[in-house]
């Protein structure tokens, strides 16, 4: 079920992006930013859409405070989460994974310096540090948000990679490689990193759940991507004002966020269990 949900979110996000980016909104998904009660210059009239409306055939999940289709916004909101997750995992695995693998392999002063730096960064409350970094940027687009979250993901991946690198570096096949005179860089790239990578991928699923929550928190606080881009967090934030009139407008994006986080945790746990089994077989 978790996989199905994640597939739906992934597919929906890609579909929405293709629709707006390449096909100009010709696919049967409403424009997430179209205000159905908005002004139409062609007819010089305002639309008849109802703000904060309930579920209907025209609007499967109702409309928000300015009469935009909630379903379309949830689907499009998945794109932001998807990009942030992919970028943060990419940054974490590539930079953090390499760094952790390297210091776990070479040890010595390099390890001390790198891990001390990692510890210092991890000592800061993650969300507070993130808020501080995000506040620096005047323009907060998807690239900036993803990059900031990605950079902040690096220390955690470094720590995980280093722990695994230590274990892998003491395995027999690494010792054998050293014994036959293989160059350290070759051992690192051919023996250590490939064995650290599966753990990092499993960790990435769990970390993705955290990243989705973090992005949602930023959006809720108005510090994520700029309006009118739909994100689940900013949908919750904007709907909370009308919670007494239509609580569903808060519930729908909250559900999307919660189920996605739960699914990522489930899938992450699954991969981690598989990794443990494979590791024990080595």
């Amino acid at each position: 079920m978790a996989s199905i949900w994640l597939f739906l979110v992934f597919f929906g996000a890609i579909y929405a992006k293709i629709d707006t980016g390449l096909l100009g909104g010709s696919l049967p998904l409403q424009n997430p930013n179209f205000q159905t009660n908005g002004f139409d210059p062609a007819t010089s009239t305002f639309g008849s859409g109802e703000p904060i409306a309930g579920v209907s055939t025209a609007h499967w999940l109702g409309t928000d405070a300015i009469a935009r289709d909630t379903f379309a916004r949830i689907v499009h909101g998945g794109w932001v989460s998807l990009v942030v997750v992919v970028v943060s995992a990419g940054c974490g695995i590539i930079i953090g994974g390499f760094l952790g693998s390297l210091v776990g392999f070479v040890r010595g002063r390099t390890e001390t310096i790198v891990m001390a730096s990692v510890d210092v960064i991890l000592a800061f409350p993650a969300l507070v540090l993130l808020l501080a970094l995000v506040s620096i940027f005047e323009v907060r687009n998807l690239f900036v948000i993803s990059a900031v979250i990605g950079v902040l993901s690096i220390p955690a991946y470094t720590r995980v990679a280093r722990a695994n690198s230590l274990a892998v570096s003491s395995r027999e096949f690494v010792t054998a490689a050293r014994a036959i005179g293989t160059k350290p860089s070759r051992i690192l790239f051919r023996e250590v990193i490939p064995n650290v990578l599966p753990t990092l991928l499993a960790y990435a699923m769990v970390a993705a759940a955290f990243v989705v929550v973090v992005e949602g928190s930023l959006s809720f606080l108005g510090l994520s991507v700029q309006l009118p881009t739909a994100t689940w967090g900013n949908m919750i934030n904007q709907a909370r004002r009308d919670i007494k009139i239509n609580v569903a407008q808060v519930i729908w994006p909250s559900l999307a966020l919660s189920i996605t986080v739960l699914s990522l945790n489930q899938v992450g746990d699954f991969f981690q269990q598989r990794r443990e089994v494979r590791g024990s077989n080595l």
Binding site: G38, P41, G222, L227, Q238, R241
Partner: peptide, 21 residues
């Protein structure tokens, strides 16, 4: 400021301005 009501209102203004082309 990032108040939900103000966010909603500025998106209304944005839609109107954008509609002018």
């Amino acid at each position: 400021p990032p108040d939900p009501t103000l966010i909603a209102s500025m998106q209304v203004v944005e839609q109107l301005y954008t509609a002018s082309g």
